[in-house]
Amino acid sequence: MTDKTQQLKAFERLLIIMDELREQCPWDKKQTMETLRHLTIEEVYELGDAILDNDLDEVKKELGDVLLHIVFYSKIGSETNNFDIADVCHSICDKLVERHPHIYGDVKVENEDDVKRNWEQIKLKEGGKTSVLQGVPKSLPAMVKANRIQDKVSGVGFDWEQPEQVFEKVEEELQELKVEIKNGNQDNIENEFGDVLFSMINYARFLNINPENALERTNKKFTKRFQYLEQKAKSLNKQLADMSLTEMDVFWEEAKQLP
């Protein structure tokens, strides 16, 4: 591992390259924060994939891509005299110091939950916020947003006490969904289905499971098994659409045995 001096030199190298690209590269010269936005989102998702795959070499590369975007935005900000990379660094440093009074002040905490509660209380005081939910980005995917909402309200004490209570809520919401399915009102079915998902996401939090990660792992598992099914069908010169569910189930059970 490199020492701090080498790390700072590496970061300086990136800043110099960014300056050169912004001045000399036709593509880099024309970029704005708006044109970079969707690319940044894509890079963060690619980082998330690498993390779930536990591909540390890929994680390193994707972190570099995300870091490049941070430097790029900062470069654009410096050109309009709004902020530069130093301002960005100082901003997060100031925030971290302020939100960790148990490290940089005289506040005492007993555990992680105390830290989270202090964090949310401090955030609420910042910028005249009137709700702990003001910090939840509107554009977050619904599952991630639900998880953040629940996490934030928990930070101010609005939460269940035991996991069993949350699972009872899941069962209650499932029963309400069954009733609406029988009634056949599509709007009510959608509402109750949303309540089931919300309660399941909440239960995941009590099990110390990230629901987004859990669902993505299942997506990857399903994809791998289905592609095995496709390969087996191809080896028999068959189309999946022409196979019975019984035939497909044989290969599906084989796929479940794969590592």
Rank of each mutant, 00 (worst) to 15 (best):
Q7F: 09
I181A: 11
K256I: 01
K129G: 01
T35H: 04
M33A: 09
G77Y: 06
D94Q: 12
G155K: 03
W160D: 02
K178F: 07
F251D: 00
K123I: 00
L8H: 11
Q24W: 07
V109M: 10
E171I: 14
T40V: 12
G194E: 02
E112Y: 09
G105S: 12
N237D: 14
V109T: 09
K29G: 03
V66W: 09
V156L: 00
E173Q: 15
K238T: 00
E192Y: 07
K116D: 06
R225K: 04
H90C: 05
E34T: 14
G48C: 06
W119G: 01
V196M: 02
L229H: 04
I103S: 00
H90L: 13
G127H: 05
L15G: 00
K138C: 05
W160A: 15
N147F: 13
K30N: 12
K61H: 12
K169L: 13
Y228I: 08
K129D: 01
E12N: 14
V153Y: 01
G157Q: 01
E58Y: 07
M200W: 03
D55E: 05
V166R: 11
Q31A: 10
K138M: 08
N183L: 13
L21V: 06
L36R: 10
P211G: 05
S139D: 14
G155H: 02
R22S: 05
G194M: 04
V66C: 13
S91A: 07
W160P: 02
D19Y: 04
D57H: 07
F206V: 00
D187C: 03
E98G: 08
D249F: 08
F193Q: 02
E46I: 12
Q7M: 14
N210Y: 08
Y73G: 03
L245A: 11
E79W: 08
V109N: 07
Q186L: 15
K182V: 09
A146M: 14
V71R: 05
T32I: 12
E120I: 13
E79V: 12
D53E: 15
L207M: 15
A214Q: 08
A214P: 03
I209R: 04
D106E: 14
D113V: 14
G194A: 02
N188Y: 08
L56R: 09
R99E: 12
A214R: 10
K232H: 06
L140F: 13
E190G: 01
E120G: 01
D57L: 13
Q7E: 06
I17D: 04
A146G: 02
L56E: 11
V196Y: 03
L96I: 04
T5Q: 02
G127P: 02
S74C: 06
Y45L: 14
S74L: 10
K29N: 02
P211T: 01
K108D: 00
L140E: 05
D94S: 15
I122N: 08
H102P: 03
Q121N: 13
L245H: 08
E190M: 14
K221I: 01
L14Q: 12
D151I: 03
H90F: 12
E254I: 11
M1T: 05
T40G: 03
H38Q: 07
M143P: 00
S235R: 10
M200G: 06
V144P: 00
E98I: 03
K61D: 15
E58K: 15
N210F: 09
Q6I: 09
L39P: 00
S131H: 06
E58R: 13
I17R: 12
F222P: 01
K238M: 00
G155S: 05
V196E: 01
K169N: 09
F167V: 13
